[in-house]
Simulated scan of single mutants.
Amino acid sequence: MAKRTAVVGAGVMGETLLSGLVRAGRGADDLVVVEKRAERAAELTDKYGVPVVDDVAAAAAADTVLLVIKPQDMAGVLDELAPALRSGQLLVSLAAGITTAFIESRVPEGVAVARVMPNTPALVDEGMAAISPGTWCEESHLAEASALMSAVGKVVEVPEKQQDAVTAISGSGPAYLFLVAEAMIEAGVHLGLPRPVAHELAVQTLLGSATMLRSTGEHPAVLREQVTSPGGTTAAALRTLEDHGLRAAFLAALEAARDRSRELGS
């Protein structure tokens, strides 16, 4: 018998996980969603056929509770949820910056807590999630949390001290690549290409390049060198990017994202 899972928070990521779990074979009897907006609740019920409740404490009846909420909402949600929790239950937090220690200090002793940093490609089942166990999170809990996140992509386990760096790379990472795509498309238009053509060229190039990285297992530098002929067009473009400090800009950007993640957790 499958364990019952509650999804607290039905925003974009909450619905993404719900949709992935349904596609992975979880039935309506194995799921419950907490959503206080009546219109949104009705929408989810119609779309997925799962029970939707407006009482956060009701989620505590499930074996596993997914907290898919904003960091600033975590304390309030835990205040509602904690009195109904019991030792051995699993809480999986997807709130950026919120530590397992923060959650554990607000729930009964023995409640297992796992911290997860997902990303938005989970919307197309190509997500990347990093998971870290808390004090009472045993291997069985970790396996359950990993199985839930695997419904929408890949999962890696990392020490919790690395979660802020994970947030900077994969959590926020899709936005960097969307910005690169946007810049390439705009440059293509500037160079005289029709916008639909520039869009298709940029998107397929990003997709194909990512697929090459994953399927070949080669270091990015090796693949980059394969495209870069001495004195050629790619070499000229790469030199210009380096002259504009591309690597330094990425390092500074990721450090800023990491630092903001730390601030959210404090």
Rank of each mutant, 00 (worst) to 15 (best):
T135H: 14
C137Q: 03
M117I: 15
N119D: 07
L81M: 08
S140P: 04
R115L: 12
E109V: 13
V107L: 08
A143W: 05
V107C: 07
S87D: 10
N119S: 06
R106T: 06
R106I: 10
L142M: 15
P108K: 12
V113Y: 10
P108T: 06
L94T: 04
A122Q: 08
E104Q: 11
V116L: 08
T100P: 06
E138F: 04
V116I: 12
A96T: 08
D125Q: 14
G97D: 13
S105M: 07
G97W: 04
V116P: 00
G88L: 04
G110W: 03
E138Y: 03
E104C: 10
F102D: 14
L85Q: 00
L123Y: 04
L123S: 06
Q89T: 01
V124S: 05
M117Y: 07
C137M: 11
V116T: 09
L85R: 03
T100Y: 01
M117E: 09
S140N: 12
T120P: 01
P133Q: 11
G97N: 09
A96R: 00
S132Q: 05
D125V: 10
E80P: 00
P108M: 11
L90Q: 04
G97S: 11
L90A: 02
L123M: 12
G110A: 05
S132N: 08
L91R: 03
V124Y: 05
P121G: 00
A112L: 07
R106G: 06
L81T: 02
V124C: 09
S93Q: 07
M117G: 07
E138L: 13
L91C: 10
D125S: 13
G134F: 12
V116D: 04
C137V: 08
S93N: 04
E139F: 07
A130H: 03
M128S: 15
S132L: 08
T100R: 14
R86A: 14
G97L: 06
L123W: 04
V92E: 03
V107H: 05
L81G: 02
C137N: 05
S140G: 10
M117V: 15
P133Y: 03
T99C: 09
G127Y: 01
G134S: 10
G134C: 12
G88I: 01
S140V: 13
T100Q: 05
A82T: 10
A96N: 02
V124F: 06
V107W: 00
G127A: 05
F102Q: 13
P83L: 00
